[in-house]
């Protein structure tokens, strides 16, 4: 199942699914790589509805971050719950992203 993606100018807005399971992580990775291949470098990830994310999901987001770094792009995260933010904090990923 594909996630909701909106593309504006150079920015991609993507709604992260409720549960980022192993399968959902694979789908997300494909979507990110498709967008990067199309030349997009700035991403806004909406975590408003997300209640489950593990290190496989984090891995996909780190991959996105590394790819956008190569293109001088940015990754911002909005709507993340305290738990999601703590997951990023515990794995020391939080400072690498812009938080809204």
């Amino acid at each position: 199942m594909k996630n909701q993606v909106k593309r504006h100018n150079s920015t991609v807005q993507l709604k992260i699914p409720k549960e980022v399971t192993v399968q959902a992580s694979t789908d997300l990775r494909e979507q990110f790589l498709d967008c990067i291949a199309d030349g997009y470098a700035d991403f806004r990830l909406d975590f408003t509805n997300t209640t489950f994310l593990d290190s496989a999901g984090l891995g996909v987001i780190v991959t996105l971050k590394k790819r956008t770094n190569d293109a001088n792009g940015t990754v911002s995260i909005e709507g993340a719950s305290d738990s999601i933010q703590e997951l990023f904090q515990l794995t020391r990923l939080k400072p690498s992203f812009q938080w809204r």
């Binding site: 891995g59 780190v62 794995t91």
Partner: peptide, 21 residues
């Protein structure tokens, strides 16, 4: 102990998560 993101490939991240939580 936290490595920086550039060093933090998926397996390392997972074990740190387990140890921290």
């Amino acid at each position: 102990w936290f490595p920086c993101m550039e060093e933090l490939e998926e397996p390392g991240r997972g074990i740190i998560l387990l140890l921290r939580v």
